[in-house]
């Protein structure tokens, strides 16, 4: 027997920090409206403290992750893709559901400052976007044990030395995702970062769909084999979180794309703080598979280490 009067159990999605799902320590939430304007769910409204906690978790997770074998990292990224495949419907639904965030929240202020704006991207359906995101992850699962051979080399020095250069992960990277595409934007920025052995603190885009998609992705990650703290996901407001990212001395780099100019400026100013490597991409077409699969998306988040040793009998 079915009942038409059953009340939906609406969900409040939580943050992903250190492999666990805490609510924001601030207790704040943001509502996500469906296409009809009805509130379908809530996500946590991450605070500066949540961000700092996430950075701490990412730092703690860094050494085991970067020193794991490349083969293992590849298998874990592939496992993540497998788990996404199993949640294709839920991910697509998340993208379809969130049309805009509740009016009157902090987001409004961010909008005023040129905040939420979905930049031009080729229109793809939610289903196609999910498939593109999964395929992007698979691509980088395959890169984990190859980019070193493309970006590194042996160096023919003019002396009796053996000399080689290898790329090594930069460290803790803040991933600042665009408002659209909701899922693909985040995955495309995150995959090259963790592929290289960095750990990530992600700030989801400010559209409702970006927040929901990021939250669902967090649930996927937690149930795949990704070690806790390697990927941390925050839903919140850029104008609050980005200055903390810029000033945080334990964040080594930033990967962002298609965000507003004010946000980009805040992030770029962080270079002067601790020489963090800041890569803010503009006008990215995330559905361009050839571009997005390039090792030049990994290269900004590796450091070239050159090793010398004398060679003699």
């Amino acid at each position: 027997m079915t009942t038409t009067s059953r009340l939906d159990v609406t969900k409040t999605y939580k943050l992903l920090i250190d492999g666990k799902f805490p609510r924001s320590e601030s207790g704040r939430t943001l509502a996500v409206e469906g296409a009809s304007g009805r509130v379908t769910s809530h996500v946590c409204h991450a605070s500066r403290k949540d961000l700092r906690d996430a950075v701490g978790a990412a730092r703690k997770a860094l050494d085991p992750w970067r020193h794991a074998t490349a083969y293992l990292r590849g298998q874990i990224l592939y496992r993540m893709a497998e788990m996404m495949e199993g949640k294709r419907e839920e991910l697509a639904e998340a993208i379809r559901t969130g049309a805009a965030c509740e009016p009157g929240s902090d987001v409004k202020a961010a909008k005023g400052a040129g905040g939420t704006r979905a930049l031009a991207n080729r229109k793809v359906s939610a289903d196609d976007e999910v498939m593109l995101a999964i395929d992007r992850l698979v691509t980088f699962a395959g890169w984990t044990d190859k980019y070193q051979q493309v970006l590194g080399c042996n160096n023919p020095v003019a002396g009796p030395y053996y000399n080689f250069s290898v790329p090594e992960p930069t460290g803790v990277i803040a991933v600042v995702a665009p408002d659209a595409p909701a899922l693909l934007g985040l995955v495309a920025l995150l995959a090259p970062v963790i592929c290289a052995g960095n750990t990530a603190v992600c700030v989801a885009g400010e559209s409702g769909s970006a927040r929901l998609a990021a939250s669902v992705l967090g649930e996927v990650i937690a149930t795949s084999d990704v070690p806790g703290g390697v990927v941390n996901i925050l839903t919140g407001v850029r104008s609050e979180l980005l200055p903390v990212i810029a000033q945080h001395r334990d964040i080594d780099g930033v990967h962002a794309a298609n965000i507003d100019a004010a946000s980009a400026k805040v992030l770029r100013e962080g270079v002067a703080e601790n020489l963090k490597r800041v890569k803010v991409r503009e006008g990215v077409d995330f559905s361009d598979e050839a571009e997005g699969a390039s090792p030049w998306w990994i290269e900004p988040f590796v450091e070239i280490k050159t090793v010398w040793h004398p060679s003699a009998m």
């Binding site: 023919p156 020095v157 030395y161 250069s165 280490k305 090793v307 010398w308 004398p310």
Partner: peptide
């Protein structure tokens, strides 16, 4: 570190980043 010298130090070469 960006340059690691093993059993040597302060070696430089145009071909070495």
């Amino acid at each position: 570190a960006g340059v690691v010298w093993l059993n040597t130090y302060n070696r430089f070469d145009a071909a070495s980043p």
